[in-house]
Design a protein around this nucleic acid. Structure first.
Length: 482
RNA sequence: GGCGGCAUAGCCAAGUGGUAAGGCAAUGGUCUGCAAAACCAUUAUUCAUCGGUUCGAAUCCGAUUGCCGCCUCCA
């Protein structure tokens, strides 16, 4: 069984074969750090988080590199516009590096809260200025680029395959672009490799062409090939980056290295809110911080992963709430299994069934993830396993060992890999309310014995109002947080 | 205008030629003093519409309608 993944470059699903057997190099476009991380970031990075975890679980050694774009870049790829970071710095009246630092930290914080594992390492555009300058020089030297007035442009006509990723034909594009936008470029589709710093521009570096800063696309080409090789396995990112960003990356890299840049292009789809594009100008974008204040990380992940990565996720409050409700079945099972394990139940006749169930479910989950990262399918497999596990549990013929087997399975896939199951028992570290709860539960038990059900119900109702649920079972009363 | 994607039950969502996964919501039942949780059962003769290919199509092809994204920064 091996991974099959949809390759945007060939527009079909392909069996994944790494350049180096047993090893995977993956590069994912990270955020430009000038504002709060939002649900769109979450979709992208949760997707690649699961991909990487799945690859590692499959026995592959993965080097996962993600960039942090901390060099401004213009709001407009033509010659107008302002550096995004600098603009934010002006608005906040701080130094650009303060903007960069603040949002880098926020990004990493949010990702950690969302159980998105750290990449193998992050790379920063600002720390690879030298390499970028060298790449631009080499491109000029081999005739792929030219300098005009301190700006350097890549000449798309020097790369006949330009457009192969996005399906845009250069000839068709020419007509569409208005002549007046051409400026000093030889071809209006030429894109900047190096920009001259206008007066007042703060984030700038010395270069053979004077003070300036690197163009938008060159950082990814340089950093990806530096750490992963001239031809590496997977390049990931959001769909909206397919053109022009990724198209330009291919043009630069392949003109420079004369080797295929990346074998598999993986693009995740977008997030909409109530059916409409999420965007700053529309004022409907959901930040991770805001979402995390109202929903668990597990619910957010489950919401994202319950839609295939190549389909758009439509955020509605109703949808994410329903997802969260569904998730309680999984955590209920986890608690029930832990209870069984603590009881140290002896050999059970259902253990063989549990083992069989685990083998089947794991096989199914792996098959789903291997099939172009079908996370909705994997979650469905996990859910139907919950029903079966509950049946085994209800049969009272499961031993602690059998319970442990089931528990390990849901913790591995639900917890570690998909990240939709919170580890149990981590709650209430601040204050141990267990003794208080014991007291209340005993009191309620006495009331029930005395047939004072109104009092017993009142205790239960009031606890519910405080966010604690009381459940009477044959083994006694238990409680949990709502 | 160019490029790409999507339309599956009240809602979310799989399905990649062999006769519609899973979740939420709802209803009935078992259990319970009553609940909760759990389990059982029911909920799409049908996959936007119209044609075509095929023994057979939600799945392939064509047309139509609607929605979304990209083409300017964006995950």
């Amino acid at each position: 069984m091996a991974l099959t993944i949809y390759n945007s470059l060939t527009r079909q699903k392909e069996e994944f074969v790494p350049v180096e057997p047993g090893q995977v190099g993956i590069y994912v476009c990270g955020p430009t750090v000038y504002g709060p991380p939002h649900l769109g970031h979450a979709k992208s990075y949760i997707t690649f988080d699961v991909l990487v975890k799945h690859l590692r679980n499959s026995g592959l050694k993965v080097r996962y590199v993600q960039n942090i774009t901390d060099v401004g870049h213009l709001t407009d790829d033509a010659d107008a516009g302002e550096d995004k970071i600098q603009r934010q710095a002006r608005i906040d009246q701080v130094h650009p590096w303060e903007v960069v630092d603040k949002w880098t930290r926020q990004y990493m914080n949010d990702m950690e809260k969302l159980h998105v594992a750290h990449p193998s390492f992050y790379v920063r555009a600002s720390q690879h200025i030298g390499e970028q300058i060298e790449a631009v020089q080499a491109l000029i030297a081999n005739g792929s680029a030219y300098e005009v007035n301190g700006n350097v442009y890549f000449s798309v006509e020097a790369f006949p395959e330009y457009g192969k990723l996005s399906g845009r034909r250069l000839e068709e594009q020419k007509e569409a672009v208005r002549v007046e936008s051409r400026g000093e470029k030889k071809n209006p589709r030429d894109f900047a490799l190096w920009k001259k710093a206008e007066p007042g521009h703060i984030l700038k570096w010395n270069s053979p062409w004077g003070e300036g800063y690197p163009g938008w696309h060159i950082e990814c080409s340089v950093m990806a090939t530096k750490y992963l090789g001239k031809t590496f396995d997977i390049h990931g990112g959001g769909l909206e980056n397919k053109f022009p960003h990724h198209e330009c990356e291919i043009a630069q890299s392949e003109s420079l290295n004369h080797a295929p840049f990346c074998r598999y292009w993986v693009h995740n789809n977008m997030v909409t809110v109530d059916g409409i594009k999420m965007g700053k100008s529309l004022g409907n974008f959901k930040t991770c911080e805001d979402l995390l204040s109202r929903h668990s990380a597990e619910a957010i992940r489950a919401f994202i992963l319950s839609t295939h990565y190549r389909s758009p996720s439509n955020y509605t409050e109703e949808a994410i709430s329903a997802t969260a409700t569904g998730l309680t079945r999984l955590s209920q099972l986890q608690s029930a299994l832990q209870e069984l394990i603590e009881k140290q139940a002896g050999a059970g006749s259902a253990d063989a069934d549990a083992e069989k169930l685990c083998v089947e479910v794991e096989k199914k989950i792996v098959a789903c993830l291997d099939d172009d990262l079908d996370t909705p399918g994997a979650i469905a497999a996990l859910y139907s396993m919950v029903t079966d596990a509950n049946k085994l549990l209800a049969s009272s013929s499961l031993s602690s060992a059998g319970g442990q087997r089931l528990l390990s399975l849901i913790q591995k896939w639900g917890g570690e890999i998909l990240g939709i199951l919170a580890p149990a028992g981590k709650a209430s570290a601040e204050l141990d309310i267990a003794p208080v709860m014991d007291m209340l539960i005993n009191l309620r038990k006495e009331m029930k014995a005395a047939k004072k059900f109104d009092v017993a119900d009142s205790i239960r109702d009031r606890l519910k109002e405080s966010g604690i649920l009381i459940e009477d079972t044959k083994e006694g009363t238990r409680w949990r947080k709502a």
